[in-house]
Design a protein around this nucleic acid. Structure first.
Lengths: 221, 221
DNA sequence: TGATCCATGTCAGCAAGGTGTCAGGTCGTT
DNA sequence: AACGACCTGACACCTTGCTGACATGGATCA
């Protein structure tokens, strides 16, 4: 799971990063509010750990803008200012939990697990289209219940398309989300990848919208 | 999507234009504030990228006048002067986002997508006239519920007409929004395109207003 | 170290689809 | 009737996306 850590104190940040990575998370760290807002608004994270005392833009303002834009990832707030009023502000702004500094790293991990679990309850971690099913927790793709082995890139492609099923996704958008920011568009690697996925999962999952991109249909029933 | 780029530095402008076009936008460029204000006030753009350091009329003044006139398109501000105060001024003037120079082109694209997505959140994604329905999320056109395959240009034409149903749309306006240029009128490409769409969707969707343009009727009930 | 496997990118060729042009036809307006 | 606006079918050209074959490169294991 990909986690965004927003923390300007380098010592705390490095401790937290070490603990999170040991616990199996993929962590990205930013140090100011501007950058935090931008990343959270344009990338997809499984959770965000947000320090309130930030240069650039206040943490609460960042959170409010994410929520105003419809971003729903769970957010855990850190702060030194631990008053009750502060806490209420955080919850009102859309935080899922709140952890006063100083804290023990184990408590942070516990709270993180808690909000991730809770938010998973809202959005199920298994989605499907037609006869294809994606289980994000197990990172497994199945056709009519039969698991199919997927390579890392193949999995990322299928996962992204299924998460955004019912919508046309452009090649450019796929490039960005499957590869890191790739723009070598003298390459047809993506098309080849699509072909390989189709060979494994059947030709009907991914529709081509010539000139626009690809579409995984939302199953009506 | 049609984008207005307001930038007086020719080198930056040409880089940005190249990237935007590669990403599928139709771009128009202007170099001074006067012209920018006029274009933004009289034309329809999906988004505006506005440099603040301009000859003719200050960028912020341009933006304020647009907003005062009720223009609501999303605006992304570029500037070399990256102070916090400047930024606040920009937001107060009605900008949707703010990008300090120098910037990486990928970041510009990401922020542009972000503000476009946000502003699109306000508009519904399915519209119809008579028996024809347009689903913008799926980029799909249906007749009485049956999906019809459309080419990119055909789709853009139908989408534009349906978004502006109930109003006569001139050939010139269509030229600008479906292709990206207004002036090659030794060609009847647009008429041919209209013909192809009629063949697919039936002759009743698009009415001809001889000498004025075309009209997609607003369904009474 | 070397053999092997797997994931992935590259390339060339192909088929189908998309689009502009043109020549002529139709229709409405004056 | 004459003119101009608009429509239509046919055709040629180019672009897009798909496919199979091959190259590369990293990981694994003997």
């Amino acid at each position: 799971m990909r986690v965004l850590l927003v923390e300007d104190d380098r010592r705390i940040a490095s401790d937290v990063v070490r603990a999170l990575e040991a616990a199996g998370y993929v962590v990205e760290t930013v140090r100011d509010g501007e950058e935090a807002w931008f990343r959270g608004d344009t990338e997809d994270y499984g959770a965000v750990i947000l320090d309130l005392g930030l240069p650039g833009m206040d943490g609460l303002a960042v959170l409010k803008r994410w929520r105003a834009n419809g971003r729903q990832m769970p957010v855990l707030i850190l702060t030194a200012r631990a008053s009750w009023a502060e806490r209420v502000d955080g919850i009102d702004a859309g935080a899922d939990d709140y952890l006063p500094k100083p804290f023990r790293i184990e408590e942070l991990l516990a709270r993180l697990r808690s909000i991730v679990r809770r938010s998973a309850g809202h959005a199920s971690s298994v989605v499907s289209s037609g006869e294809i099913t994606l289980d994000e927790r197990q990172m497994r793709v199945s056709v009519r219940g039969v698991p199919i082995a997927m390579s890392p890139l193949e999995y990322r492609l299928v996962a992204y398309l299924l998460r955004h099923r019912g919508r046309v996704v452009s090649q450019h958008e796929l490039d960005e989300n499957v590869y890191g920011h790739g723009e070598d568009h003298d390459s047809n690697a993506l098309e080849v990848l699509i072909g390989r996925v189709r060979k494994k999962l059947g030709p009907d999952l991914i529709e081509t919208r010539r000139g626009f991109g690809y579409l995984v249909p939302e199953t009506p029933a």
